[in-house]
Simulated assay, not measured.
Amino acid sequence: MSDDGDDDVVHDFAPLIVVYRSGRLKRPFADAMQPVPPGTDAATGVVSRDVHLSASLFVRLYLPPAATAAAGENKLPVIVYFHGGGFVIGSAASPAYHRCLNDLAAACPAIAVSVDYRLAPEHPLPAAYDDSAAALAWVLSDTDPWLAAHGDLSRVFLAGDSAGANICHHLAMHHGHDLHRRLKGIVLIHPWFWGKDPIGEEPRGGEAMAAEEQKGLWEFVCPDAVDGVDDPRMNPMAAGAPGLEKLACEKVMVFVAEGDTLRWRGRAYAEAAAAARARGGDAAATVELLESEGVAHVFYLFEPGHEKADELLRRIAAFVSSK
């Protein structure tokens, strides 16, 4: 958008996004990172390439070295990954996500598909949900040569961090494409959920500014939100939200971080998912929760050598590979 000289700030969600009265946008955090192309990763041997599904939607596929030995009856699971960034920043081509997906594909091993969905405010929700659903439908169509040759589409996992974890939940709840038969599990890393009433040790009283920031950003990216942050898309445990027994997957894994304001919502989600499965007579269904101590929101993207990042990667690999 053009700058007409009006520098009055009307929305300040720095460092994610700043919106000026003129319509000009700044994304300080994202603007500091240049996109990286696909190719062969020297550290892992993973090969990646981009596939454009439309003029505004592409996915980046990752093929680990193990795929060459996984033909025929020994195909690899498929992980569809959705990046975070509050629905306003992030890209499958960002350096942090590109490195993360190379590491993830190699560690599992799995065919990974990283989705580059449209961002708000240029494309407010449900654009990101719609793009993500379209990308998932494309994966399940089995038309890509890498997926057809090396991917086991009866073992599909959805994974994502923050807003991307929110997308995973949304897709698993509002499923089509025969997901109950094909979706093995969802991996929610530091999921972006919120609600009107504080839970756990969420900000209260004089600390409520942090809560207002969560509320403000959600209503900015989702202007048609029903009941603000108690919209079921942001608060899966809100009164009237669909029950988590509707999740179209066999297994659920939730990661939270000790230094993350969102950790209480992640814990509550894992507890609610386990309770829903027990009520439905599926008490043996797997719901795992891991809290990383001494680290903050999506730390693993920017501290890949951290011991807690290694633990997170190992736990995802075990989750994906287990029966």
Rank of each mutant, 00 (worst) to 15 (best):
12 D>V: 12
3 D>K: 03
127 A>G: 02
221 V>F: 11
27 R>V: 09
121 P>Q: 05
195 G>T: 05
145 P>K: 03
86 G>V: 06
223 P>C: 14
304 P>A: 10
175 H>A: 12
161 D>N: 10
31 D>C: 06
295 V>M: 06
110 A>H: 13
93 A>L: 00
282 D>M: 10
79 I>V: 15
292 S>P: 06
193 F>A: 09
125 L>R: 07
322 S>N: 13
292 S>W: 07
252 V>I: 11
123 H>E: 01
40 T>P: 06
301 L>V: 02
262 L>D: 11
220 F>C: 10
112 A>W: 10
266 G>M: 14
203 P>W: 14
188 L>F: 14
1 M>G: 02
150 H>M: 01
319 F>L: 09
114 S>F: 06
56 S>L: 08
110 A>P: 05
91 S>E: 02
236 P>R: 13
160 G>D: 01
80 V>K: 12
290 L>A: 13
243 G>H: 11
52 H>L: 06
13 F>A: 10
288 E>G: 01
40 T>N: 13
282 D>G: 06
43 A>M: 07
51 V>T: 05
176 G>K: 11
263 R>G: 09
9 V>T: 13
152 D>S: 02
24 R>F: 12
159 A>W: 02
51 V>Y: 00
291 E>V: 04
176 G>W: 08
10 V>S: 03
78 V>F: 04
300 Y>V: 08
115 V>R: 02
317 A>E: 08
22 S>A: 11
183 L>K: 11
73 E>I: 00
286 T>M: 13
176 G>C: 08
168 C>S: 13
268 A>S: 11
107 A>W: 07
21 R>L: 01
182 R>A: 14
45 G>L: 09
135 A>D: 02
121 P>H: 04
191 P>Y: 07
254 V>I: 05
271 E>G: 10
1 M>E: 07
73 E>V: 07
234 M>T: 04
64 P>R: 05
67 A>E: 13
260 D>W: 07
271 E>L: 14
9 V>Q: 14
128 A>E: 01
82 F>I: 01
146 W>S: 02
231 D>G: 12
259 G>A: 13
138 W>K: 05
47 V>Y: 11
254 V>A: 00
209 M>S: 06
104 L>H: 03
314 R>F: 15
293 E>T: 13
187 V>F: 04
56 S>N: 09
159 A>H: 02
32 A>V: 05
288 E>R: 13
255 F>K: 14
74 N>L: 04
132 S>N: 02
227 D>Q: 14
121 P>N: 03
265 R>Y: 13
232 P>F: 07
226 V>I: 15
64 P>M: 12
266 G>D: 10
319 F>H: 10
180 H>W: 03
86 G>P: 03
68 T>L: 00
230 D>V: 12
203 P>K: 09
